[in-house]
Amino acid sequence: MTVYSVIGAGVAGLAVATELVARGAEVQIFDPSGPPGPHGCSWWAGGMLAPWCEYENAEEPVLRLGQEAISWWAQHTEVTHRGTLVVANRRDLPDLRRFSRRTEGFRAVSTEIADLEPELHGFSKGLFFEQEAHLDPRKALMDLYKGLKDNGVPFHKTLAPPQLKHAIDCRGLHARETLHDLRGVKGEMLVIRCPDVTLIRPVRLLHPRMPLYIVPRGDGIYMLGATMIESEDSSRITARSMLELLSAAYALNPAFGEAEVLEIGVDLRPAFPDNLPRIRRLGHTIYANGLYRHGYLLAPALARGVADLALHNTHSEMVDEDRA
Protein backbone atom coordinates (compact mmCIF):
# COMPACT_ATOMS: atom_id res chain seq x y z
CA MET A 1 0.00 0.00 0.00
CA THR A 2 1.17 3.50 -0.81
CA VAL A 3 2.46 5.44 2.20
CA TYR A 4 2.05 9.18 1.96
CA SER A 5 4.74 11.22 3.70
CA VAL A 6 3.54 14.54 5.01
CA ILE A 7 6.42 16.92 5.70
CA GLY A 8 5.70 19.60 8.26
CA ALA A 9 3.39 19.41 11.27
CA GLY A 10 1.82 22.84 11.20
CA VAL A 11 -1.84 23.40 10.50
CA ALA A 12 -1.42 22.56 6.81
CA GLY A 13 0.48 19.31 7.35
CA LEU A 14 -1.73 18.06 10.17
CA ALA A 15 -4.93 18.90 8.30
CA VAL A 16 -3.66 17.15 5.15
CA ALA A 17 -2.61 14.08 7.16
CA THR A 18 -5.95 14.01 8.97
CA GLU A 19 -7.89 14.22 5.71
CA LEU A 20 -5.81 11.45 4.10
CA VAL A 21 -6.27 9.18 7.10
CA ALA A 22 -10.01 9.89 7.12
CA ARG A 23 -10.11 8.67 3.52
CA GLY A 24 -8.32 5.46 4.43
CA ALA A 25 -4.81 6.31 3.24
CA GLU A 26 -1.65 5.30 5.05
CA VAL A 27 0.33 8.29 6.27
CA GLN A 28 3.56 9.13 8.05
CA ILE A 29 4.67 12.58 9.20
CA PHE A 30 8.11 14.18 9.28
CA ASP A 31 8.93 17.30 11.25
CA PRO A 32 12.37 17.83 12.77
CA SER A 33 10.91 20.34 15.23
CA GLY A 34 8.62 17.70 16.70
CA PRO A 35 4.96 18.05 17.68
CA PRO A 36 3.12 21.34 17.17
CA GLY A 37 4.68 24.20 19.12
CA PRO A 38 5.96 27.77 19.04
CA HIS A 39 8.31 26.96 16.12
CA GLY A 40 5.40 26.98 13.65
CA CYS A 41 3.47 30.05 12.60
CA SER A 42 0.08 28.35 13.06
CA TRP A 43 0.86 28.24 16.79
CA TRP A 44 0.46 32.03 16.81
CA ALA A 45 -2.76 32.28 14.87
CA GLY A 46 -6.04 33.83 15.97
CA GLY A 47 -8.13 30.79 15.11
CA MET A 48 -11.07 32.76 13.78
CA LEU A 49 -13.29 30.87 11.38
CA ALA A 50 -14.52 34.09 9.82
CA PRO A 51 -14.92 33.77 6.05
CA TRP A 52 -17.58 36.48 5.84
CA CYS A 53 -15.44 39.06 7.64
CA GLU A 54 -12.29 38.07 5.78
CA TYR A 55 -14.04 38.66 2.46
CA GLU A 56 -13.69 42.38 3.14
CA ASN A 57 -10.12 42.25 1.94
CA ALA A 58 -9.75 38.84 0.30
CA GLU A 59 -10.74 37.20 -2.94
CA GLU A 60 -13.89 35.16 -3.46
CA PRO A 61 -12.40 31.68 -2.78
CA VAL A 62 -11.72 32.72 0.81
CA LEU A 63 -15.44 33.35 1.35
CA ARG A 64 -16.58 30.18 -0.41
CA LEU A 65 -13.91 27.69 0.67
CA GLY A 66 -13.69 29.17 4.15
CA GLN A 67 -17.30 28.22 4.83
CA GLU A 68 -16.31 24.54 4.71
CA ALA A 69 -13.93 25.10 7.59
CA ILE A 70 -16.37 25.34 10.49
CA SER A 71 -17.88 21.89 10.05
CA TRP A 72 -14.50 20.29 9.24
CA TRP A 73 -12.92 21.60 12.42
CA ALA A 74 -15.97 20.69 14.52
CA GLN A 75 -15.22 17.04 13.68
CA HIS A 76 -11.73 17.30 15.14
CA THR A 77 -11.66 19.90 17.90
CA GLU A 78 -13.82 22.19 20.00
CA VAL A 79 -15.35 24.98 17.91
CA THR A 80 -17.17 27.88 19.55
CA HIS A 81 -20.14 29.15 17.55
CA ARG A 82 -20.78 32.65 18.79
CA GLY A 83 -20.23 34.75 15.71
CA THR A 84 -18.00 37.78 15.28
CA LEU A 85 -18.77 41.32 16.37
CA VAL A 86 -17.23 44.14 14.32
CA VAL A 87 -17.13 47.64 15.81
CA ALA A 88 -15.46 50.95 14.99
CA ASN A 89 -14.59 54.04 16.92
CA ARG A 90 -16.90 56.93 16.18
CA ARG A 91 -14.34 58.67 14.01
CA ASP A 92 -13.88 55.52 11.94
CA LEU A 93 -17.57 54.97 11.14
CA PRO A 94 -16.86 55.43 7.41
CA ASP A 95 -14.72 52.29 7.72
CA LEU A 96 -17.67 50.43 9.21
CA ARG A 97 -19.88 51.46 6.28
CA ARG A 98 -17.17 50.35 3.89
CA PHE A 99 -16.83 47.02 5.72
CA SER A 100 -20.58 46.47 5.46
CA ARG A 101 -20.52 47.12 1.70
CA ARG A 102 -17.71 44.66 1.11
CA THR A 103 -19.06 41.78 3.19
CA GLU A 104 -22.20 39.74 3.62
CA GLY A 105 -23.75 37.45 6.21
CA PHE A 106 -24.10 40.08 8.95
CA ARG A 107 -26.74 42.20 10.55
CA ALA A 108 -26.23 45.79 11.67
CA VAL A 109 -26.43 46.14 15.44
CA SER A 110 -26.61 49.13 17.75
CA THR A 111 -28.31 48.66 21.12
CA GLU A 112 -27.88 44.91 20.65
CA ILE A 113 -24.13 45.36 21.13
CA ALA A 114 -24.77 45.69 24.87
CA ASP A 115 -26.67 42.37 24.86
CA LEU A 116 -24.00 40.54 22.88
CA GLU A 117 -20.99 41.90 24.72
CA PRO A 118 -22.05 43.87 27.82
CA GLU A 119 -18.49 44.93 28.54
CA LEU A 120 -17.80 46.68 25.26
CA HIS A 121 -17.91 50.34 26.07
CA GLY A 122 -18.76 53.32 23.95
CA PHE A 123 -19.63 51.59 20.69
CA SER A 124 -22.96 52.63 19.23
CA LYS A 125 -22.74 50.82 15.89
CA GLY A 126 -21.48 47.46 14.80
CA LEU A 127 -21.94 44.46 12.52
CA PHE A 128 -22.73 41.00 13.83
CA PHE A 129 -21.62 38.02 11.77
CA GLU A 130 -23.66 35.37 13.51
CA GLN A 131 -22.57 32.35 11.44
CA GLU A 132 -18.88 32.72 12.23
CA ALA A 133 -17.01 30.68 14.81
CA HIS A 134 -13.61 30.40 16.44
CA LEU A 135 -11.31 27.81 17.92
CA ASP A 136 -8.20 27.65 20.06
CA PRO A 137 -5.42 27.06 17.49
CA ARG A 138 -3.03 25.34 19.89
CA LYS A 139 -5.71 22.97 21.13
CA ALA A 140 -6.79 22.36 17.55
CA LEU A 141 -3.23 21.45 16.49
CA MET A 142 -2.79 19.15 19.49
CA ASP A 143 -6.18 17.52 18.83
CA LEU A 144 -5.20 16.79 15.22
CA TYR A 145 -1.82 15.53 16.37
CA LYS A 146 -3.35 13.23 19.00
CA GLY A 147 -6.01 12.03 16.58
CA LEU A 148 -3.30 11.01 14.11
CA LYS A 149 -1.27 9.29 16.83
CA ASP A 150 -4.40 7.41 17.94
CA ASN A 151 -4.83 6.26 14.36
CA GLY A 152 -1.32 4.84 14.41
CA VAL A 153 0.26 7.47 12.17
CA PRO A 154 4.05 7.38 12.70
CA PHE A 155 5.53 10.72 13.59
CA HIS A 156 9.25 11.12 12.80
CA LYS A 157 11.07 13.92 14.56
CA THR A 158 13.59 14.08 11.75
CA LEU A 159 14.06 15.66 8.37
CA ALA A 160 12.31 13.79 5.62
CA PRO A 161 14.71 11.55 3.71
CA PRO A 162 15.50 12.84 0.21
CA GLN A 163 13.89 11.27 -2.86
CA LEU A 164 10.75 10.27 -0.97
CA LYS A 165 7.96 9.06 -3.18
CA HIS A 166 4.44 10.29 -2.44
CA ALA A 167 5.70 13.23 -0.41
CA ILE A 168 3.43 16.10 0.56
CA ASP A 169 5.42 19.17 1.45
CA CYS A 170 3.59 21.40 3.93
CA ARG A 171 6.60 23.26 5.31
CA GLY A 172 5.33 26.79 4.80
CA LEU A 173 8.09 29.29 4.21
CA HIS A 174 10.77 26.58 4.45
CA ALA A 175 9.68 25.39 1.02
CA ARG A 176 10.63 28.62 -0.69
CA GLU A 177 13.81 27.19 -2.18
CA THR A 178 11.41 25.33 -4.51
CA LEU A 179 8.41 27.66 -4.46
CA HIS A 180 10.06 30.86 -5.61
CA ASP A 181 6.90 32.98 -5.59
CA LEU A 182 6.33 32.35 -1.89
CA ARG A 183 6.96 35.29 0.44
CA GLY A 184 6.74 35.93 4.17
CA VAL A 185 4.31 38.46 5.62
CA LYS A 186 5.17 39.48 9.13
CA GLY A 187 2.52 39.17 11.81
CA GLU A 188 2.74 40.18 15.45
CA MET A 189 0.37 39.23 18.26
CA LEU A 190 0.03 39.32 22.02
CA VAL A 191 -1.57 37.03 24.56
CA ILE A 192 -2.88 38.91 27.57
CA ARG A 193 -4.71 37.96 30.75
CA CYS A 194 -7.41 40.23 32.03
CA PRO A 195 -9.99 38.55 34.28
CA ASP A 196 -11.67 41.95 34.81
CA VAL A 197 -13.10 41.96 31.30
CA THR A 198 -15.42 39.35 29.83
CA LEU A 199 -15.79 39.05 26.07
CA ILE A 200 -17.22 35.81 24.78
CA ARG A 201 -16.63 36.04 21.04
CA PRO A 202 -14.02 37.48 18.66
CA VAL A 203 -14.36 41.24 18.37
CA ARG A 204 -12.82 43.20 15.51
CA LEU A 205 -12.01 46.83 15.86
CA LEU A 206 -11.81 48.52 12.49
CA HIS A 207 -8.63 50.43 11.99
CA PRO A 208 -7.54 52.28 8.88
CA ARG A 209 -4.37 50.24 8.42
CA MET A 210 -4.83 46.74 9.85
CA PRO A 211 -7.56 44.37 10.95
CA LEU A 212 -7.22 44.34 14.74
CA TYR A 213 -9.07 41.69 16.66
CA ILE A 214 -9.30 40.14 20.08
CA VAL A 215 -10.17 36.49 20.55
CA PRO A 216 -11.22 35.09 23.93
CA ARG A 217 -9.33 31.96 24.95
CA GLY A 218 -11.20 31.42 28.23
CA ASP A 219 -10.08 31.99 31.82
CA GLY A 220 -9.65 35.71 31.19
CA ILE A 221 -7.05 35.08 28.50
CA TYR A 222 -7.23 36.90 25.19
CA MET A 223 -5.29 36.80 21.98
CA LEU A 224 -4.69 40.21 20.39
CA GLY A 225 -3.76 40.30 16.74
CA ALA A 226 -2.45 40.89 14.30
CA THR A 227 -0.22 43.13 12.30
CA MET A 228 0.37 42.58 8.59
CA ILE A 229 3.71 43.88 7.43
CA GLU A 230 5.44 43.19 4.13
CA SER A 231 8.65 42.29 5.87
CA GLU A 232 10.50 39.01 6.24
CA ASP A 233 12.22 39.80 9.48
CA SER A 234 10.53 37.83 12.24
CA SER A 235 13.07 38.47 14.96
CA ARG A 236 11.01 40.79 17.16
CA ILE A 237 7.92 42.93 17.65
CA THR A 238 8.25 46.69 17.22
CA ALA A 239 7.16 49.19 19.82
CA ARG A 240 4.74 50.67 17.29
CA SER A 241 3.04 47.34 16.70
CA MET A 242 2.73 46.64 20.38
CA LEU A 243 1.28 50.10 20.94
CA GLU A 244 -1.31 49.57 18.23
CA LEU A 245 -2.33 46.16 19.51
CA LEU A 246 -2.63 47.30 23.12
CA SER A 247 -4.43 50.50 22.09
CA ALA A 248 -7.03 48.38 20.33
CA ALA A 249 -7.71 46.41 23.50
CA TYR A 250 -7.76 49.59 25.55
CA ALA A 251 -10.23 51.17 23.12
CA LEU A 252 -12.56 48.19 23.48
CA ASN A 253 -12.53 48.46 27.25
CA PRO A 254 -10.16 50.62 29.30
CA ALA A 255 -10.01 47.84 31.91
CA PHE A 256 -7.66 46.05 29.48
CA GLY A 257 -5.10 48.57 30.72
CA GLU A 258 -4.69 46.31 33.74
CA ALA A 259 -4.05 43.20 31.66
CA GLU A 260 -0.90 41.14 32.08
CA VAL A 261 1.05 40.51 28.90
CA LEU A 262 1.66 36.75 28.83
CA GLU A 263 3.15 36.22 25.40
CA ILE A 264 4.50 38.09 22.43
CA GLY A 265 4.33 36.24 19.15
CA VAL A 266 6.12 37.17 15.93
CA ASP A 267 6.24 35.06 12.82
CA LEU A 268 5.95 35.05 9.04
CA ARG A 269 2.88 33.90 7.15
CA PRO A 270 3.69 32.04 3.93
CA ALA A 271 1.89 33.73 1.04
CA PHE A 272 1.74 33.64 -2.74
CA PRO A 273 1.33 36.90 -4.72
CA ASP A 274 -2.49 36.77 -4.66
CA ASN A 275 -2.53 35.69 -1.00
CA LEU A 276 -4.41 32.49 -1.92
CA PRO A 277 -3.16 28.96 -1.16
CA ARG A 278 -1.77 26.70 -3.86
CA ILE A 279 -1.30 23.00 -4.47
CA ARG A 280 1.52 22.07 -6.87
CA ARG A 281 2.76 18.65 -7.91
CA LEU A 282 6.39 18.69 -8.98
CA GLY A 283 7.83 15.25 -9.61
CA HIS A 284 7.11 12.99 -6.64
CA THR A 285 6.16 15.81 -4.32
CA ILE A 286 2.89 17.64 -3.82
CA TYR A 287 3.41 21.10 -2.36
CA ALA A 288 0.57 22.57 -0.30
CA ASN A 289 1.35 26.07 0.83
CA GLY A 290 0.49 29.79 1.00
CA LEU A 291 -2.27 29.78 3.60
CA TYR A 292 -1.31 33.38 4.48
CA ARG A 293 -3.55 34.70 7.27
CA HIS A 294 -6.10 31.97 6.62
CA GLY A 295 -4.38 28.93 8.13
CA TYR A 296 -7.36 27.55 10.02
CA LEU A 297 -9.91 28.98 7.63
CA LEU A 298 -8.50 27.38 4.48
CA ALA A 299 -6.55 24.34 5.77
CA PRO A 300 -9.62 22.07 5.42
CA ALA A 301 -10.14 23.05 1.77
CA LEU A 302 -6.40 22.73 1.14
CA ALA A 303 -6.40 19.27 2.76
CA ARG A 304 -9.32 18.16 0.62
CA GLY A 305 -7.59 19.45 -2.48
CA VAL A 306 -4.41 17.55 -1.64
CA ALA A 307 -6.30 14.34 -0.91
CA ASP A 308 -8.24 14.67 -4.18
CA LEU A 309 -5.00 15.05 -6.11
CA ALA A 310 -3.01 12.38 -4.26
CA LEU A 311 -5.71 9.70 -4.09
CA HIS A 312 -7.91 10.36 -7.13
CA ASN A 313 -5.77 12.52 -9.40
CA THR A 314 -8.54 15.14 -9.43
CA HIS A 315 -7.52 18.78 -9.68
CA SER A 316 -9.24 21.14 -7.29
CA GLU A 317 -9.15 24.87 -8.03
CA MET A 318 -6.13 25.29 -5.74
CA VAL A 319 -3.93 23.20 -8.03
CA ASP A 320 -2.01 25.64 -10.22
CA GLU A 321 0.72 23.39 -11.55
CA ASP A 322 1.02 19.63 -12.12
CA ARG A 323 4.32 18.29 -13.41
CA ALA A 324 4.21 14.80 -11.94
Binding site: G184, I229, E230, S231, E232, D233, T238
Partner: peptide, 13 residues
Protein backbone atom coordinates in the same frame (compact mmCIF):
# COMPACT_ATOMS: atom_id res chain seq x y z
CA UNK B 1 10.27 51.80 4.00
CA UNK B 2 9.81 50.46 7.42
CA UNK B 3 12.99 50.46 9.33
CA UNK B 4 12.76 46.83 10.43
CA UNK B 5 12.66 45.53 6.90
CA UNK B 6 15.83 47.08 5.63
CA UNK B 7 18.36 44.66 7.09
CA UNK B 8 16.60 41.46 6.07
CA UNK B 9 17.42 39.33 3.11
CA UNK B 10 15.07 38.30 0.33
CA UNK B 11 12.72 41.21 0.66
CA UNK B 12 10.22 39.69 -1.73
CA UNK B 13 7.79 42.57 -1.60
Amino acid sequence: LRREGAGGTGQSF
